[in-house]
Each structure stands twice: as structure tokens, then as C-alpha cells.
Design a protein around this nucleic acid. Structure first.
Lengths: 338, 338
DNA sequence: TTGTATGCGTTATCAC
DNA sequence: GTGATAACGCATACAA
């Protein structure tokens, strides 16, 4: 309720002097500082950040817009963003789009109105509308985890999705599997597309041309993984191995296998992209291609901060990180080819 | 970049008219409105909410401060808050304190500076410092999930923790257990204290007086549950049943049992407070006392909104919701008393 | 139905 | 070291 004026009056100084105490800027005599600090304490003064930001044109706030904060991959990524931003004195606002581009547009609009200093975006789709809005307002932006539309100039951090998928499928092939299915994510989302491409390349190189019968599409969720796997298990020649395009799909798939009275890996080998929720990780079971989620968040935030400081080059930068193949039990042992 | 002035000039009207179009307030001719809307579109005008809020003294923003957003109980509660607030036109800021009172104080300070219209608080500890700060700034407040310190007048929504714990332990007693342990939460956190009280009452009523040997304290985390259970299993006369004070402790405990080469419920019966993460829920296994998490968030937000509208009574209101006993497998069958 | 004057609480700029 | 002045972009109060 008290304003900077009230504090100034009480301390017998000008408002700007109070401002200097709060922000630790400019020169101040020790005595003045103490008088002001006493007045602040007595009045229980709380600075108004709205006024501060309106005048200074900086909110010291970043936004992270992502598609599913309940996915542990994104939770970890968010922590990487938060830690890095926090060290640099920035607050982070988190927004969850549930893979909906409409939600994404709404959030981006609000964030721009809030005058956030920068945005980290995991795009829900690839129309690039949100990216365009952000760039039109000259708000610094980094695209995270997914490819932006072609010909869009923007800083990017993502992983080798194609190569990671290739390695996983390659592993299954080397174990002797030929009928390998893929539970893919949403068509048009670059991570899903790239992982599918990696699957296809591995299959093609292995001389397997009819693989497309075992390609099914869904969303990046546990429910989708369950449904897709259940259906795949009911096909005439069910696969001996399955690649889940992310961790949640993998968990759903595992449950579908169990619900069908089958076992992983004995009846069906199972591998997935992304490491698992901590609540499941104490059973080291899933063979995965793990993305360095925390590091992705950190690197992306560093790119953004460098732009905010004006320390970034004109051109868009692109960081593509490797994934790590972690072989556990769900991929099983070498099998005898039928 | 464009301001309300630019739009006004372009549309040939006064800034206030543009303001009226944006906020749908006051009377406007259809023609004027259209001219203004055209100008807004042409200039890609984005209203500045900082300026708007500074002037109007409302941010249309609520804050939810909680202790662990990765706990599915709080995730669900947060959704209840978000949905209810969103329907009323409010945005929600989420803050995670990790059970640290220092973090809580920092967040509360920032939120007050941001001029949020109201705060929903799950207090990390019970010193009441944050509550005091918030009330001093006359910011509407609802305390969620946990009891505020005695003699603090504040709206509250929480559950029947004591009664829920009593029922769970009662269930174990009725199944024939006598050596029942409790993996409790942090001392001083009201939910932990109340659940422990429920345990003690049930044991006392059953004429078991030496139960305190089987009371161990930790934090509301999976790691803590694991450690506590591991230690408890190594005691001389290990318990035949255990009550975990929340879901994460329960999961950790289950893993400790398995790691010790034992089984639930055959070797140790296990029950816990709070329902489980969706990723685990498809195995309906845990016997729990489930809190209506979504509803708690909804009810708390309704209390807060009523205060914001000035439609609330002077006195503090208290809503205490029942918990639901869900009996699944982990509590096991009746046993023969040794 | 539309406009003028003013101020929200703070900081940038320049002056002393 | 400290202060006076103006301005950030918008909405309230009142007027026309």
C-alpha cells in the first residue's frame, strides 16, 4: 500500500534515492542508505513491479511455453530453464499448451501483452504462427525440442531425433528382429516425424520394405500408447519388437502388453525415446534413447539470455545435441529368426 | 511496439475510444468499432498489460504457491485451480517451494510485487510469516491443504487428515495386524502431524501402547519412503503392516520392500494417503485414503474469487472435505494373529 | 456516443 | 551523492 513516495518522505529523501537503494544503483552514502532501509522496513514497503517495468521496459521475466508439463522429459527440461534463468536474475512463467496450437496462440498473446523479456517455445504444430507473432513484436525467442518451419530464422535447440530412432531400431534389428512396429506420435510434429524417419531408414537399410503396415500414429500420451499397442497386438502377424516414439507411449504400450497377457521382452521387445519418470526409474527396465533434457533447457536459456544482453550474432543459431542409447532389459536378448 | 496512441491516430479517434474497443466497455457505434479494429489489425497492436494493470489496479492474475508440483496430488489440485480461475477470466502463476520456507517467502515477495490479485498458499511450514506478509498488503488469500497456525484468521480448504489416517489404520487393525508402522512426513507440517494423530488414535483405541517404536519421520518424497521403509524392515521385530503418510512415500516404500526380497501384501501390508500418479494407476494396487484434489483446488479458488468480488463475509471461512477410503490389493487379506 | 484532463508508481535523463 | 522533471502506456472521472 505504501509507495516509494511515502518511503521517501519518511526518510527525508527524494523518491529516486529510494529507488537507488532498492536497485543498488548509483552512489549512496552509508547513512542515507540506512535511513531509507529503516523507512522501508517501518512502512513494510513493497515495490510495484508493474510501475517499475513500465518505466524501465524490462520485466526480468522469461516464458517457457511447452506441450505437456506432466511429461517428465519436459519437467526436467523446465528445471534446466528455471535454474539457468534464475541464476541470471530472471523469473520464468510456465505455460502448458496440451499440444493445441490454439492454446499456444492464446498464451503467446498473453505473454506478449505481459511484456516478457523473452520466450522459449516448444511449438505445438509447425504452422509458425506463434513464432511470427513473437518476432513481429521483436521479442527474443528460442525454439526448443522441435524444428521450426523451413525458412524461419530463429535460434533453436533440439536433439538428434532421427539418429536416435535409427539407433534404437538398429539395436532391435541386430537382436534379430524383422517385424518391428512403431508407435508414432502426431503427424506434423517434427520430433514424431524425425523419429519415424529414423525408423524407416533403419528398416530400409535392413532390406525390409513392407514395414509401413506396422507404422501407427497417435499422440504423445500414455493412453495413446496403450490403444496403439493393443491394436498392433491384434494384427494378423503381430510384431516381435516395437519402438515407442516417446516415454509415455512406451509406458502405455507396456501396460497393453501386460493386459494382453503377454510379457516384455519375452513376447514383445520394447524400446522407447526419452527416459522415464523418476517414479518408474528405480526399476531399470526400459531400453531408451535418452535426450539430455536438463541440458537442452540450459543451453536454450543461454541462447536467449545472450540475445537479451545484445551479445548474440545477427544470424539464427542452431544447437543439436546427441541422444544417449541406454540398453536395459525391455529390448531383450538376441532371438532366433523365424 | 505500437501503442494505443498510434492506433487512435490511425483510426482517427481518441485513445480512450481504442481502450473501449479493447475492453468492450462503454457505448460504441458499430462503425467506430470497425475502424478501430482495422487499425489494431494493421498495426499489429498488442495492448500493454503492465500499463493497463498499473492504472486499473487489477492484474487478473492469481498465484498458487505449493510445495511439490511433481506430486500428482498437487498436479491435480493445480488443475482444479487453473480451470476455475480460467473460467472467471483469471490467469494463474504457479510457484514451487520444495517444502522450503525460505523459497516460499521469496516467491510471496515477488508475487506481491507483481500485484497479483489473490494468492492460494500451501504453506511449507507453519510459522505463518508468509501469511502475515500477504495479509499486510491486503492481498486476498486462501490457505490450501494445510492448517494455518492457530489464531490466524484466513480462509482455508483442507481434508480430514486425522480421520482418513484413522480409517486406514483401522482397516489394518481389522485385518488382524498389531505391529503397524507409520512412515510419516515432516514434523510440523500439519498434514503429517494430523495423519500421525489419526494413526495414534487408532492404535490407542486398539489397546496398543508401544506403537511409537514403529513411528519414523521423513519428508513427503519417494526417496524418503524408500529409506524409511528399508530401515523399518531391518528392525528387530519388523511390522506386518505399514501406513505411508503420502503417495510418494508409499511408492518408495513399495520399492524398498521389493528390494529387500519381500512382497506386498504377503510379507508386509501397505496403505497410503493420497491416490497415485496416473502412470501407476493402471495397476490398481494401492489401498489409499484419497483426497478430492481437484475439488480442493476448485473450492479454494471459489473462496478466493468471492473475496475478490467483495462477495465474501468478514470472517474467515473453513472448508474441510472428506477423504475416500479406496481398498485395493496392497492392504492384503485378514491375517492370523501371531 | 466520443473526448479531455489527469494520474497510476516507478525510473531515465539531466542538473546540481 | 542527491534531486527535479518528465515519461512509460493505459484507464478513471468527468465533460460535451
Amino acid at each position: 500500500m505504501a509507495t516509494i513516495h511515502d518511503v521517501a518522505k519518511r526518510a527525508g529523501v527524494a523518491p529516486i534515492t529510494v529507488s537507488r537503494v532498492i536497485n543498488n544503483s548509483g552512489y549512496l552514502s552509508r547513512e542515507t542508505r540506512q535511513r531509507v532501509e529503516a523507512a522501508i522496513a517501518e512502512l513494510e514497503y513493497v515495490p510495484n513491479r508493474l510501475a517499475r517495468s513500465l518505466r524501465s521496459k524490462r520485466t526480468n521475466t522469461l516464458a517457457l511455453v511447452l506441450t505437456d508439463i506432466t511429461n517428465p522429459f519436459f519437467t526436467t527440461l523446465a528445471r534446466g530453464v528455471e535454474d539457468t534463468a534464475s541464476d541470471a536474475g530472471y523469473t520464468v512463467i510456465f505455460c502448458n499448451t496440451d499440444e493445441s496450437e490454439a492454446e499456444e496462440r492464446k498464451y503467446v498473446q498473453v505473454l506478449l501483452q505481459q511484456q516478457v523479456d523473452g520466450i522459449l517455445l516448444v511449438p505445438a504444430a509447425n504452422t509458425g504462427e506463434s513464432i511470427e507473432s513473437i518476432q513481429k513484436q521483436n521479442t527474443p525467442l528460442v525454439v526448443l525440442d522441435r524444428r521450426p518451419p523451413p525458412a524461419v530464422a530463429v535460434d533453436t535447440v533440439r536433439c538428434e531425433n532421427e539418429a536416435g530412432a535409427y539407433q534404437l531400431v538398429r539395436l532391435l534389428l541386430d537382436l534379430g528382429h524383422r517385424r518391428i512396429g512403431i508407435l508414432s506420435g502426431p503427424i506434423g510434429v517434427s520430433t514424431a516425424d524425425d523419429r519415424l524417419a529414423g525408423y524407416r531408414r533403419a528398416m530400409r537399410e535392413a532390406g525390409i520394405s513392407d514395414a509401413d503396415q506396422l507404422v501407427v500414429y497417435g499422440s504423445f500420451s500414455q493412453a495413446s500408447g496403450y490403444d496403439l499397442m493393443r491394436d498392433l497386438l491384434q494384427t494378423e502377424q503381430r510384431p516381435t519388437a516395437v519402438f515407442a516414439a516417446n516415454n509415455l507411449i512406451g509406458i502405455g504400450a507396456l501396460k497393453a502388453v501386460q493386459a494382453a497377457g503377454l510379457r516384455v521382452p519375452d513376447d514383445v521387445a520394447l524400446v522407447s525415446f526419452d527416459d522415464l519418470p523418476p517414479t518408474l526409474l528405480t526399476f531399470p527396465f526400459f531400453t531408451v534413447a535418452a535426450q539430455p533434457a536438463y541440458d537442452m533447457g540450459r543451453r536454450a536459456t543461454e541462447l536467449l539470455l545472450s540475445r537479451l544482453r545484445g551479445a548474440a550474432p545477427e544470424h539464427a543459431r542452431e544447437i543439436i545435441l546427441p541422444v544417449e542409447l541406454i540398453v536395459r532389459q525391455s529390448s531383450g536378448q538376441p532371438i532366433n529368426r523365424p
